[in-house]
Amino acid sequence: MSARPRSPQERGGFALLSLYAVLIYLFLYLPIAVIVLFAFDAKPIPGLPLDTLTTGWFVEALRDQKLTGSLLTSLRLAVVSAILSTLLAMPAAMVLAWLPIRFKSLVMAMVLGPVVLPQLVLGLGLVILLRSAPDLVGEPAIILAHTTITSSYATLILYSRFLGFRRSYIEAAMNLGASELVVFREVILPLVRPALISVFMLAFTDAFGEFVVAWFVAGFTETLPITIWTSLRQVISPKVYALSSVIILVTLAISLVSQLWVIRQTRLTSKVQTS
């Protein structure tokens, strides 16, 4: 429940704040709208004013084997990274949130590190590391690099989710005769499934869109962000906007839906009962 404004002064403040909010959302979504708009612009060099609209660029984008090839590469690598980071993050986050461990601050530093480390620096460090394993350059290296970043994000997100999880669910199940494994299967997994899926999706989106680190360790592999980067250095074809706008809309939809779903689900399992 929000406090509804009462006095005229407060009502004025509310109106001003609402107007401001509209402007901020415009700022956040204007670039997205522009990309989508120019995906339909018939001119080969996009610009205002728009005269004819076409869906031709979408078809062009699908015909461009370089674009679709790198799109598929990105999808494939991001799925692997997302699976790996969810698998790494889930047990770690459970331990961090529920079990007493020694050197907790050191562990947290290791988790937080890849998030705060400038990605450029991580990329360079990995380049040096890969000198001793040159065979990994390319797809395996991209997966390794992305998993390093996304597993950190995933752990932090899951950790905060698990902190809010009512411990007594676990204790109640154990108390009724469920061993650790059974507790995990019967109680924890069903209750944290939404959080896991949302973390998987976020890890996927992050790995899918990451550019800098991938660029350094990619060798001759081209992910979609790398392809777009290359095209941005030349005159950019509207088919790139066409493909981008589809991906952006899908990304937005994924993050919107998965987050909303999680909010609804966590109400059930959180410590504070919201009635």
């Binding site: 522009v34 989106t205 991906i247 909303l260």
Partner: peptide, 25 residues
């Protein structure tokens, strides 16, 4: 909830695409 998620959502769009959009603007 919806408004918060709507603020965060653009963060998950690939950085190169966001930059491409700003070049258009």
């Amino acid at each position: 909830g919806l408004l918060l998620i709507a603020v965060i959502a653009p963060f998950w769009i690939s950085i190169v695409m966001r930059v491409a959009a700003w070049r258009l603007l």
